[in-house]
Simulated assay, not measured.
Amino acid sequence: MNTLMRAAALTALLACAAPAAALAQAPPPAAETMFRATTLNLAAYGETRVQPDMATISLGVMTSGRTAQAAMQANALKMTQVVEALKRAGIAAKDIQTSGLNLNPQYAYEQNQPPRLTGYQAQNMVTVTVHDLTGLGKAVDATVTAGANQVHGIQFGLDDPTAAENAAREAAVKALAAKAELYARATGHRVARLVTLSEGTASYPMPPPMAVGAVAAMRMEKADTVVSAGEMKVRVDVTGLYEVTR
């Protein structure tokens, strides 16, 4: 009797497991639908051009001394003068940030002789954010007059890029839709619907940071350094999956 009951239970268990196994092997409804549908997986981008309203300048002071202490003291004195000049030019203290501080020994190299220590070189760099571009040239000139002898370049940007990025998004979506229509017509289909839409990171393709040039050339007595902001690009990339039908 026990044997008959165990056989019946095993038969019932196998009967329940068979539909479950078949269900596990069946493709998900969504995947099956996508397999049956004809889709276009496309990418596009949108760009807008705007005038920058802020800039960052990388500048600083390099000094030399017979000893490390002498080089650092001379550097600290000149950098204090540079920072004060920036503040007088209207730059807030929060917009002046130290970006590099270096102290390196200097050696003289002679043939068949070991390197000879000749002194030390100190460098202190700051990154300055300028929100009023009309005073950018004067700010650069003020720092050079105060003792800055390292000006590495100017990078323009936007205080609030939201509006420019949204305009680029709209242009990207329109370009994506136009591309979908083109591919659909070319293959004898029509666009049925947009299934998915993804956005990449907004980017700001620009030329390399503008080099200011030789510092000596910026010591002008009769004219300020001329800095032109021009225009900058804001770009947004998107990808989309479209379903098409006959």
Rank of each mutant, 00 (worst) to 15 (best):
V50W: 02
V50F: 05
Q51N: 06
Q51L: 10
Q51K: 07
P52Q: 10
P52I: 00
D53M: 02
M54I: 08
M54A: 10
M54T: 14
M54C: 10
A55I: 02
A55H: 04
A55N: 00
A55D: 05
T56A: 05
T56F: 07
I57T: 09
I57S: 00
I57L: 15
S58P: 04
S58R: 13
L59Y: 08
L59M: 06
L59H: 11
L59E: 07
L59G: 13
G60D: 07
G60F: 09
G60R: 04
V61M: 09
V61H: 00
V61K: 04
M62N: 10
M62A: 15
T63P: 05
S64M: 15
S64G: 15
G65T: 06
G65W: 00
R66A: 15
R66S: 13
R66F: 14
T67M: 09
T67W: 05
T67Y: 04
T67S: 15
A68K: 08
A68D: 11
A68P: 05
Q69C: 07
Q69F: 11
A70W: 03
A70T: 07
A70E: 11
A70P: 05
A70Y: 06
A71H: 04
A71T: 09
M72E: 11
M72I: 05
Q73P: 11
A74S: 12
A74Q: 15
A74R: 15
N75E: 05
N75I: 03
A76E: 12
A76L: 12
L77V: 13
L77N: 03
L77I: 07
K78D: 08
K78Q: 15
K78A: 12
K78N: 05
M79R: 06
M79A: 04
M79D: 00
T80F: 08
V82N: 02
V83I: 15
E84R: 11
E84G: 07
E84S: 10
E84A: 11
A85L: 03
A85M: 04
L86H: 01
K87M: 08
K87T: 01
K87E: 02
R88I: 11
R88M: 03
R88A: 08
R88K: 13
A89N: 10
A89G: 04
G90H: 02
I91R: 07
I91T: 05
A92Q: 14
A92T: 14
A92E: 08
A92S: 08
K94A: 14
K94M: 10
K94T: 11
D95P: 09
D95C: 03
I96A: 00
Q97P: 03
T98P: 12
T98I: 11
S99C: 09
S99Q: 12
S99F: 12
G100C: 03
G100W: 09
G100S: 07
G100D: 14
